[in-house]
Design a protein around this nucleic acid. Sequence first.
DNA 1: TTGTACGCGTTATCAC
DNA 2: GTGATAACGCGTACAA
Lengths: 335, 335
Amino acid sequence: MTTAQRPTLEAVARRAGVSRATVSRVVNGSTTVAESIQQAVRRAVEELGYVPNLAARSLVTQRTDSVALVMPEAATRVFSDDQVFPGIIRGAAQELEAADKQLVLMLAGSPAGHERVERYTTGRHVDGVLFASLHGEDPLPGRLARLGIPVVCSGRPLDGAEVPYVDVDHVGGVAEAVRHLIGNGRRRIATIAGPQDMVAGIERLIGYRETVAAAGLPELVAYGDFTRESGTAAMRQLLAADPELDAVFAASDLMAHAALRTLREAGRRVPDDVAVIGFDDIETAAYTEPPLTTVKQPIVELGRAMTRQLLRIAAGETVEQALVLPTELVLRDSA
Amino acid sequence: MTTAQRPTLEAVARRAGVSRATVSRVVNGSTTVAESIQQAVRRAVEELGYVPNLAARSLVTQRTDSVALVMPEAATRVFSDDQVFPGIIRGAAQELEAADKQLVLMLAGSPAGHERVERYTTGRHVDGVLFASLHGEDPLPGRLARLGIPVVCSGRPLDGAEVPYVDVDHVGGVAEAVRHLIGNGRRRIATIAGPQDMVAGIERLIGYRETVAAAGLPELVAYGDFTRESGTAAMRQLLAADPELDAVFAASDLMAHAALRTLREAGRRVPDDVAVIGFDDIETAAYTEPPLTTVKQPIVELGRAMTRQLLRIAAGETVEQALVLPTELVLRDSA
DNA sequence: TTGTACGCGTTATCAC
DNA sequence: GTGATAACGCGTACAA
């Protein structure tokens, strides 16, 4: 390791023949510096390859110019095929780039990891914290918010904490999907629900229940965890429970994909015998057999919206507690 | 924003009735502190909810306990369905968690982003930099390495810089796949190659070329960019160029997936008329029609290995310049 | 074993 | 407009 001593403000100041304070002003874009001096300083900065030390800066400014994105690393799901988390990451990264801030990614899978996240964020080492899709009633968002740390969640916090959040319109999206099925004459509409310790799972099930109930239709529910494997198992259960079912709404495209295959293996034609609708609109949805009709959610936009809210909070503004993004039914061939 | 003043070392010291230095020792796990005092300090820390200020700490220790993972945000591909980048992220996060370091994610899509990455990493604001899949001849890794900043790339740097890297055995994996096709009697084996400004694209094409050449077979190449759309276009080109082709090796599963559909639309049966093999082994590969035979690459392990190498370099050890991870041919129904 | 004192590289508050 | 100088919160020789 070459200990190539990085130049400091001091070094630049000497080189340019001015004081540290002046260099600092130029570096930070103060306008109250004579043009000639600015040029001299800039030249010195260039020649020495000076780069400000962020640690020193944040020590005095009390800002870190970075925000944390916390994801619960629930085994396989976080980076599973459904692109939900990558989409959020991408949206957040885009928005933060525009704000010239860094994205610190934290996976809080293990209890130890969860504690690390708490230590790190509690210690004000980031300007704010983004929570992606919580499991169960995580008390952390509420706790941080109470400590005055800017926090934004994706999805309503399940513990009822008064934390600002952004979410997609699960209920509305599912309702539209189920109404579409009903409109096509389907009468025995089942659902493969998502995990009931996550808002997305809970609300999509609510959307299904409300809509079939409103139409006076019976409900038929099996549970999965958004993955394909769970979708396969759930589809089999449904088929066993009601061999005559004529439609399935799956709470994720992955589960819908698995349902498609399971139905085919069971001798059902899609959509002739059974119509299938998924949720997410992942890229694969256009390539399933048959192509999947699904509820599209604006996942990158979700990441961006969360980040924008967070930045506004960090800037001292107050934001609405809930922001709900619209979904859209994408019609393909499966329903 | 409640300016809930965070307690400092000073505050803890007063509370525990000792000096700052002693508190610092306890916090950092020094053994040279009397047990009774340790307890008193720990209690004070607990009561005040003290958390060390990382900025102050890194200012004096010259370490940041965080490493950057730089990804080229090439439009859609970074977070496309193929899970390559998410896999690397996940592997890196796992390994860093074990080392108690933070993962700073940087997307260097735009030129501006690229420059930000340079500023940030050059300024020694991270203990090391991981580069995921570079496009073209990016000079940044080499430059950072020369500045003495620990750097590890995924894939051999195309500009020939002497930077340590970890990669999967593209050539070997492809060779095995193509030999499998040959062994099954295929004689007109085409390939849908990846982008030729990325190592993965280049080397997979080399693997194909070497193997068909060694068998005295003709080569037939069309280019894509790893995405499904490009796979569709490439497959059409190949079919137009040689309607009699009896096998296709696609440099990514997404392109293979598109090829599957395109072949079916063109009236070819897979694998009867045309055998298809992909590369990646994404989750979807098991769910295509027919299920896709493919070359599996250990992508999460790649992320982990890169990170381990980086940590070793940062710790002052010297590591081998290249580390190549094995691939594996996963046989399903498409070939 | 514990405390004192200094320095890490910035920004911010003053005088000038 | 510019330059001293005092924080910012911590680690660590060095002294006690």
